[in-house]
Design a protein around this nucleic acid. Structure first.
Lengths: 191, 191
DNA sequence: CCAAGAATTGAACCACCGTTCATTTCTTGT
DNA sequence: ACAAGAAATGAACGGTGGTTCAATTCTTGG
C-alpha cells in the first residue's frame, strides 16, 4: 500500500516531466498530467497540495539531475579551466539533446511559484561554478575576481546562447567551442 | 477626432507602461490599464485587437527606448572596447534606476505572445553589440570570434547579472565594474 | 440645430483550469 | 468472508480575467 502510494507519486512526477519535455509547461494542465499518469484528476491532490508544489518538485528533480551530471563531469577534471569546460560541454550537450525540456527549465514562462524554483536551478549552477572559479583564483590559475558575479554571468551567457538554438532546433557548428573560448577568456584562463 | 483617437492609443500605452513599471506584468489586467488611461475596459479593444497586441507594442516601445539610449551612449565612443563599456554602463545603469520595468522587460513571466517580443528586445541589444564587436575584429582591436555568438553571450551575462540585483533591490558595490572587466576579457580586449 | 455615424461605456459573457468532495472501489486485518 | 477505513474517482464548482456588444454619449456636416 505504502509502495503503491509512492509509486503513484513517482508516476505523477514522471508524467509531468514527460509532458514538460514534450509539450512544455503550457501543456501541463493537471488533467493532462493525471491522464498520462493513469489517474483521475483529483488523485493528484492526494499527493500534492497544489499544482505549484507538484511542479516545484518536478523542476527540483530535473534540475538536480542536470546539476549532478554537470558536477560529475567537472569533478573528473583537475584544473579550473578544465572543470569549467566540462560544465559548459555537459550543460550545452544535454540541453541540445533535450531542447524542449531545457527550454522549459531555462526560459519558458511559468507560474511565479515555479519561477522561484528556476532561480534555484540557475543559482545551483552558478554556485557550482563559483566554487571552481574561487579555487582557480586561490591557486593562482585565474586572476582576481568576484566568483559570485562571474559565475552568475557565465550562467547567463550559457543560458542565453542556448535559448536561440533551442528555439531554432539546431545549434551553429561551433556554438559550444565558441562558448568555451568566450568563457575561458572572460575568467582569465591563460591561453 | 483623429487626434483624439491617436491620443487615446497613446494614453493606453502609457498607462500600460506605467503599471508595468510600478506593479509588473502581473498587475497589468486590461481593466487596470483602461482605468489608468481614463477609459472603459472595452475601449481598449477599439485600439488593439487583443491584450497581447497591446503589450507587444508596449514592450516594443519600451525596448526601443532602451536600445536608443544604449546606442546613443555607444556612438559617442570610438573604440570597440569603449562602446561595449558604454553599452554595459547604460544598460545596467538604466535597469538599476527602473528596476521593476527592467525586470518586466528582462525576466518576468509573461504570455508567450509577449515573450516573443522580449526575445526581439534581447536580440536587438545583441545585434547592436554584434556590430561593434565585428568592427573591433575587423580593425584588429579584438581577436577573431563569431560576433553573433559572443554578443548573445554578452547579453545573457548582462541580463543574468542584473536579475539578482533587480530582485534584491540593490546591486553589489562594483557589479558594473566587474561586468565590464568580465566582458572585456571575454571579448579579448587587450589590458 | 439636428440627425447620422462614430466612439465610448461597462456590465455580462465565456472559456479555462485549478481545486474540491460526495461517491465508489479497493485493500487489509480478523 | 466481512467490515472498516483508506484511496481513487471525475463531475461540478468557483475565481479569474480577457473579450464582447447593446445601449449611451459625443462629434460633425448640412
Amino acid at each position: 500500500m505504502r509502495a503503491r502510494l509512492t509509486a503513484s507519486r513517482e508516476r505523477i512526477i514522471d508524467a509531468a516531466l514527460g509532458i514538460l519535455a514534450e509539450h512544455g509547461y503550457a501543456g501541463c494542465s493537471v488533467a493532462a498530467v493525471a491522464e498520462r499518469a493513469g489517474l483521475a484528476t483529483g488523485s493528484v491532490y492526494r499527493h500534492f497540495p497544489a499544482k505549484a508544489d507538484l511542479f516545484a518538485e518536478v523542476f527540483r528533480t530535473a534540475s538536480q539531475g542536470e546539476i549532478d551530471a554537470v558536477t560529475r563531469a567537472a569533478t573528473a577534471e583537475s584544473t579550473a579551466a578544465a572543470r569549467v569546460r566540462a560544465v559548459i560541454e555537459t550543460f550545452a550537450g544535454r540541453a541540445l539533446r533535450s531542447p524542449r525540456l531545457a527550454y522549459a527549465l531555462l526560459a519558458e514562462p511559468v507560474d511565479p511559484a515555479v519561477e522561484a524554483q528556476r532561480l534555484v536551478f540557475r543559482r545551483a549552477h552558478a554556485a557550482l561554478l563559483a566554487g571552481y572559479i574561487a579555487d582557480g583564483v586561490a591557486s593562482g590559475e585565474l586572476p582576481a575576481q568576484d566568483p559570485e558575479l562571474t559565475s552568475t554571468a557565465v550562467v547567463g551567457a550559457l543560458a542565453e546562447a542556448m535559448v536561440g538554438p533551442l528555439a531554432a532546433g539546431v545549434a551553429g557548428p561551433d556554438t559550444i567551442g565558441g562558448l568555451i573560448t568566450f568563457i575561458h577568456r572572460a575568467l582569465g584562463v591563460p591561453s
